[in-house]
Structure formats: C-alpha cells, structure tokens
Simulated assay, not measured.
Amino acid sequence: MNEFPQVLTIAGTDSGGGAGVMADLKTMQMRHVFGTAVVVAVTAQNTLGVQDFMAMPPKLVDEQCASLATDLKIRACKTGMLADAEHVHCVVENLKRYDFGPLTVDPVMIAKGGAALLAEDAIATVRDELVPLATVVTPNLPEAEKLTATTITDQAGMVRTGHALQRLGAKNVMIKGGHGDDPAMANDFVLLADGSAFWLAAPRTDTVRTHGTGDTLSACITAELATGHSVADAIKTAKAYVTGTIQETIQVGHGHGPLNHWAALSEAVTVHDA
C-alpha cells in the first residue's frame, strides 16, 4: 500500500489550464508520479490574464492537508500561489504539522499577464516563515529581488542574491534568469546546500507561449525529488523539461499561451560550473 510515489502541490487553480495546480498536475503526471493538490485560491484566468480570484477559507486549507495526511504517503511537495499573509501562515503551519517530504517553494508573486497573485504585505511572511522551510526555492529575478531587497543587474548579482536567499534559510536555491537581458540565452543560477554552484543555460525561443513556466519547473523538481533523485539532478531535469515544453509549442488561446506538457526533455540545456 502507498508505495507508488505521491506528490503534493499547494497552490491556486488556473481556469485556463496553463498554470497553477493545473500545470503542476500535468507535469507530475508526465514525470510518472501521482499528483495531489491542496487548493489555496481559485482564479478566473485565461491566456489574456487574471480577471478575478478568491482565496479559500483557511479552515478548508487545513482540512485538505489533514485529509491527505491521514491517507496518502506524500514524498515531496511544492507551494505556488498563496494569495496573502494569512494563507501563507496557514500553509506554513500545515507544513510544520505534517511530513510531506522535501519542499520546493515557488514564491509566486505576479502572473504572466501582470496580475498580482500575492499581496504585498505577504512577501515578508513568505521570506520569514516559508523560505526557511524550503529544500529548494525557485524565484525568478523580480521575486528574488523582492525577497532579499536587492537589485540584480548581472550574473554577479544573481550569485550574491543566491547566497542571500540561503542565509534566509533555504537549503538550495535556483534563481531563474528568464527575465534577464541576455537576448540569446536564459541563464539560471543554482546554489546547493553544500556550497557548490552551477549555471544552467538554454537558448531562448521566440514565443509568447510561456505561461506556467515557474509552476511547471517547480512541479518537475518536486516529482524528481519524490522518485529519489538528488536536488542537483532534479533541477537539471526540470530545466530540460521546461525548455522542451517551450520549444515544442502548441497553439492555445490569444495571449500568453500555455506550455506543451507532452514535450520531451530538451537536449539544448548546458551546465557550467559557477
């Protein structure tokens, strides 16, 4: 009983199917683990943007976590959209209460179309309460800047901010460079718990169909950790998977379209020592 690898996403939904819980579960399925979900918020959303959202009552978040803990054997989990400080704190308390395995924190703040998915006053709660629980934290450049009150203008800045995030308590850090100004490559910085570090680079694809990249990447890391892979290997696989989902594009919607979760791992990703 309960031997098949089971994983958990604690996040918001995306009615358009491209991000949030929907992207997480698609990714988990593709990486051959059984995905479960605790829904923190529900969005009215499509490829054109987020029209509205509503957070779940904290009591219902508690009950979802308790329900999973009493029956399933969750081997790894991730967080995504957590809405506000009250819900971040609620999730933190549940993560302390139950053993859901190694935690990947995707500190979601802004949707692809620009809508705020985390209240401004909740950033400190994520920084002070959630990040210290993280096995892996995966901010993009703007999120990393917000969490550390720094400005990143080059790769040296990414390295400094990676160490700052580790000082906040995260064991392993991946700073995603998709918002960087290199026109040819997306460069990510990875800092591991043992102090070693490396860069992941992938060629950019000229497309607006990149909705859900952060969710997909963190969900893939979660799946790989649940099946026994090291943090370094999980991150490398996730980068290759997300790159493939962007390169093998599909045509859905009129705006920031979704990834192709059926895609194979890309062979275009390179690894460089930091």
Rank of each mutant, 00 (worst) to 15 (best):
L200P: 11
P58G: 05
E145H: 00
D128S: 15
E63M: 12
P132V: 08
I246K: 06
T161A: 03
G101H: 04
A149R: 14
A164G: 03
I10M: 08
V108Q: 11
P57F: 10
G17P: 15
K59C: 00
L8S: 10
G80N: 06
D181Y: 10
L130Y: 07
A149D: 08
W199D: 02
A201E: 15
M22E: 10
D52N: 15
I123Y: 08
R31N: 13
R167A: 15
L130H: 01
V92E: 05
D182I: 02
L60V: 13
I110L: 07
C90N: 11
A83F: 10
T207I: 05
D273F: 08
L25M: 15
A37R: 15
G214S: 06
H163L: 15
K146F: 07
M28A: 02
E224S: 14
G228V: 03
T43N: 06
K96E: 04
A134P: 07
A274T: 07
R31Y: 12
R204K: 12
N2T: 14
V7P: 00
M1K: 03
K78T: 08
L141D: 01
T27M: 01
A119N: 09
P142A: 01
F53D: 02
A83M: 09
D215T: 07
A76E: 11
M185H: 06
I250E: 05
A263K: 03
M28I: 05
T270P: 01
